[in-house]
């Protein structure tokens, strides 16, 4: 009996996954597999690497934030559990480097003050149109959720950042304003290569190769999209352990109860 139900469920689930696993990356007919470097937060017991998240935040702050907003993040998130876990004081310092308009004074002029922990990350542009105008006509997407908002997830982001500087295959035409990138859908991406060796000087002394910075900023972006991940997996472990025991108890209870029927 149990087999029957499991088989049916499995067929249905398998079909679901079958349906979902249909994303491929093509570059003019060729399909590139994603580069999967392996991250500390993968798997059912994976956790974020605090140092990596901090390096990643440094990359975002020094390179990406000039064009990309992260409006779902507030500075207080930098010091909360499960993330880069800066001290509150460090997070306050990061916040104070930016200003925000907060209310109007008695003359009706806007009051500009330094950002505090409860304020969000600043927007590099005042409008979407301004963003497009400064970026090749393309809008640099908000990065708060980017690893959840792209098929291939964080491995896609990592691969994309590695995809620059490759030789353009003979059968592909890329317009002059775009850069060739085998992982970007359509292969021509409006963003110029963002990372070069040692674009950033890491505070902890790690050598800033392109792979290193890509991995670090990808981890930071993954955290930004899923700040609850560590708590989620922790709770998951407790819940699944409980459920497995409970299922066994229920199984024995059920069979014991039904033993005398028939």
């Amino acid at each position: 009996m149990l087999n029957f139900i499991k088989i049916k469920s499995l067929i249905l689930i398998a079909s679901v996954f079958f349906v979902l696993s249909n994303e491929a990356y093509s570059a003019g007919g060729e399909t590139y597999d994603l580069i999967k470097p392996g991250f500390s937060f993968e798997g059912p017991t994976g956790t974020y690497d605090r140092e990596q998240l901090r390096r990643g935040y440094q990359v975002y702050r020094e390179v990406c934030s000039s064009c990309h907003s992260m409006k779902q993040l507030a500075f207080r998130n930098l010091s909360q559990k499960g993330g880069p876990e800066y001290t509150e004081d460090d997070a306050k310092v990061f916040a104070s480097e930016y200003t925000i308009i907060d209310g109007f004074d008695d003359y009706g002029d806007p009051i500009e003050r330094a950002r505090i922990l409860s304020d969000r990350f600043p927007n590099p542009y005042d409008s979407k149109e301004a963003a497009k105008a400064s970026n090749n006509g393309a809008y640099p997407p908000d990065l708060s959720l980017i690893t959840k908002a792209r098929s291939g997830g964080y491995n896609y982001i990592y691969s994309l950042l590695q995809g620059y500087g490759k030789e353009i295959p003979a059968n592909i035409e890329i317009s002059d304003t775009l850069s060739y990138n085998p992982w970007f859908p359509g292969n021509g991406i409006a963003m110029y290569q963002p990372l070069y060796e040692e674009s950033v000087e890491y505070e902890d002394g790690t050598f800033a190769s392109i792979e290193q910075m890509s991995a670090d900023v990808t981890a930071f972006l993954a955290w930004s999209a899923e700040p609850e991940m560590e708590e989620r997996k922790r709770l998951g472990f407790i819940v699944m352990s409980f459920l497995i025991i409970f299922v066994l108890l229920m199984f024995f209870t059920t069979t014991r109860l039904w033993k005398d029927v028939h």
Binding site: R232, L243, V247, M250, T253, T254, L257
Partner: peptide, 26 residues
């Protein structure tokens, strides 16, 4: 009542797998 609840706990195992380990798969 007991058999239904037992089946439900098995169902919950699958449900919780998605919630905690693969919440965006579907």
């Amino acid at each position: 009542t007991v058999k239904d609840f037992f089946a439900y706990t098995v169902f919950l195992l699958l449900f919780c797998y998605f919630i905690f380990y693969n919440p965006n798969a579907l």
